[in-house]
């Protein structure tokens, strides 16, 4: 899953953070196209963020009557998927050193996850807080995933992966759905795992920055660096 773009939207629909991670096709394509694809400006992204925020609220209003009547509980548990957004080689060794000696793991390089211990931010399945809002938007060119936190913060990832249009691999697909509950499929689970890790980074590098004022655009270069590293791991 290649992440193209990441947005963070605060609880009132303001855009806190927006970055593109895949460079637009270089000049070689420009001569072919008479009108160069105009890049979205920051105002466009602000509109985009508030639109998403609005749609998010509408989505819960549209719950079908059949669902309201039947009250069958949807399982919102998202399983932990290892190695999402993690470096592929260093993970195991880091684990060994940390478990081996609690006091011995003082090597300054080993603790790369900020205030998180071990080789990953979390290791357990978790329950999605996004129970009635928008979670995924599939289009012909990209897929958008939304992870919502308990406080209403929304992390939006735009992936270049396109969901298959035909019924592909239905038997194995249903098998997985049975195992993980039917509220989400594998792509959503991977995206939720990834975005939850971005949330972990946010809790470290944004919330622990003394000069960050709440609900304001994120300018921390450290956060930027860590997110870029994680997305590089994702895209590899």
């Amino acid at each position: 899953m290649a992440i193209e773009s990441l947005l963070i939207i605060n609880k009132s629909g303001g855009l806190l953070y927006q970055r593109n991670f895949i460079d637009k096709p270089p000049q070689s394509q420009a001569p072919n196209q008479p009108e160069p694809q105009q890049q979205l400006n920051s105002n466009d992204y602000l509109i985009l963020a508030s639109t998403l925020h609005g749609v998010f609220a509408i989505a819960s209003q549209l719950t079908p009557k059949a669902l309201q009547l039947s009250q069958n509980d949807i399982d919102y548990t998202i399983p932990y998927i290892p190695n999402v957004g993690m470096p592929t080689n260093g993970g195991r060794t880091g684990n060994g050193s940390t478990v081996g000696g609690g006091s011995g793991s003082s090597g300054p390089g080993s603790n790369k996850l900020g205030s998180f211990k071990g080789d990953d931010f979390f290791k357990d399945s978790f329950v999605s807080w996004n129970k009635s809002g928008l979670r995924q938007l599939c289009t012909d060119q990209f897929t958008m995933f939304i992870y919502q936190t308990m406080t209403g913060l929304k992390f939006v990832a735009i992936s270049t992966t396109v969901m298959p249009q035909q019924k592909v691999a239905t038997p194995s697909g249903t098998d997985k759905l049975d195992r993980y509950g039917n509220s989400s499929n594998l792509a959503i689970q991977i995206a939720d795992n990834f975005l939850r890790k971005v949330y972990c980074l946010y809790s470290d590098y944004v919330m622990k920055d003394p000069f960050y004022s709440m609900e304001m655009p994120i300018k921390s270069d450290l956060f930027d660096k860590k997110v870029r590293a994680m997305i590089k791991n994702m895209n590899e």
């Binding site: 196209q33 694809q37 989505a59 009635s132 995924q136 938007l137 599939c138 289009t139 012909d140 959503i188």
Partner: peptide, 16 residues
């Protein structure tokens, strides 16, 4: 991106 038409296929929410 580009002039190709890009349309919404599906929208997933927490419930439907």
């Amino acid at each position: 991106k580009g002039s190709i038409k890009n349309d919404v296929r599906s929208i997933s929410t927490g419930k439907y």
